[in-house]
Design a protein around this nucleic acid. Structure first.
Lengths: 233, 233
DNA sequence: TGAGACTATTAGGCAAGCCTAACATTCTTG
DNA sequence: CAAGAATGTTAGGCTTGCCTAATAGTCTCA
């Protein structure tokens, strides 16, 4: 026992605040500033809850926010965001590589664990895992000082028919069903693919994956990021 | 994101309730039923807070409790307690063995992690660690179905001068200073010791540990549990 | 037995986080 | 530009978990 107040010990915000920062950080990659509605939907909360918390995060200096103008992470918020993503993805690597969870299963437990993990623990963990650069879904892991690796991937839609590439990342790592669907078809980071056809009508993509022919819908295809066919030097 | 309500997902009580159950379970080993004051002191909370929570835990069926009569865990409470101890001590093993934390450092991070760990994760972890029987302090790890290994250790005070034994466990694994003190002197689980003297006056114990002579006070000595000198078959 | 010392509980309050209902602002579009 | 749609905030209320101050049992010992 002897724990009294966990909040004081962690030196970061509450787990709840961390959830908001994660949501805002993720949404900022799509559009900035981030609206209240988007955050509410992403967290499954009501808009008033979000409004209230934005005011608080703004007081804490994590978010820059003015009523009716949306929110965006401050530098401090961005640092926290990077640290949360780092913790989350390192846990995913551990769960996948050491404990044998499938890539479609690692997201929820990593969500729980990340808020219970101190810097000391996560840095030892990073060392234990050999400082991996990406999570099992190919998403980059920020460094301990909050730097993001440069991203050199592109979308499937930028590829020409007949060209080959290597899957480097699959987006929406929280969508277990989609990840299962892709894994069943061998479409995972590291796999070599050849684009056989991209239907003009509805965007359905036909791929060659390890000798087999696979068709995937436009929405799923848009979640795939590819890089050059050979492994980088 | 997409987490909404963590409480619902876990199927156990809130982390706070788990703290109480842990405290009560630990105190029950000393005396039962457990008084409000003891719980309050152990958790660093006020007695009214404890009173209130005892009423709630009683409603949840985790604790049997009547005003002014102290609390004791129900069977359901005991099961939860065993599961919490299991989670806590498996994390301690992992932190110590895989991440390289000293045995005096593992208690606090394990406290945080245990409440963020599902059954699925902890059972994979147990397998990954090879189903260890004790934590780094020698404390037993209950099985997944809540069974405690039989304990066959005894206290130092039951030993005669000149007899040898093996340290099997050190109590009060939350007392980092004491653990550091003992580790510095080679007094850790597995170490062979010989009792050279137990002072009648103040209970100071003089030990031979790996060729060196070490003196420890009565209070520290009372935290040591020993077993037969040879490792059990 | 009855005074004082403990031990517990009740009363009343506060912050964090969440909600619904009501109101306000901004955007879109005829 | 005005009306309705969409978005956002305010008001007010709830639970969890904690607190202090006041009250109430319980135990000990002269």
């Amino acid at each position: 026992m002897t724990q009294a107040n966990t909040r004081a010990t962690r030196g970061r915000g509450s787990p709840t605040e961390e959830h908001y920062v994660e949501a805002i950080g993720a949404l900022e990659e799509l559009a900035t500033p981030v609206g209240t509605a988007a955050i509410a939907q992403s967290l499954g909360l009501s808009m008033p809850s979000v409004s209230e918390m934005l005011a608080r995060l703004s007081n804490n200096g994590l978010v820059s926010y003015a009523p009716y103008s949306g929110a965006s992470l401050t530098d401090k918020g961005k640092r926290l965001f990077a640290s949360l993503v780092r913790r989350h993805r390192l846990w995913e690597v551990f769960l996948n590589r050491c404990l044998g969870f499938g890539w479609e299963e690692v997201y929820p437990p990593a969500c729980e664990l990340e808020h219970a993990t101190s810097d000391a623990v996560i840095e030892k963990m990073a060392e234990f895992l050999g400082h991996p650069g990406t999570c099992p879904h190919g998403a980059p892991i920020p460094s301990a000082d909050g730097k993001w690796p440069e991203k050199r991937s592109r979308g499937l839609s930028e590829m020409q028919d007949g060209h080959t590439a290597r899957i480097v990342r699959v987006l929406r790592e929280d969508d277990a069903d989609c990840l299962q669907f892709l894994a069943d078809r061998g479409i995972v980071p590291g796999a070599s693919i050849r684009v056989l056809d991209i239907a003009e009508f509805d965007g359905t993509v036909t791929l060659g994956v390890e000798g087999a022919t696979r068709a995937i819908g436009r929405d799923v295809a848009s979640r795939l990021r590819v890089g050059p066919d050979q492994a980088p030097a």
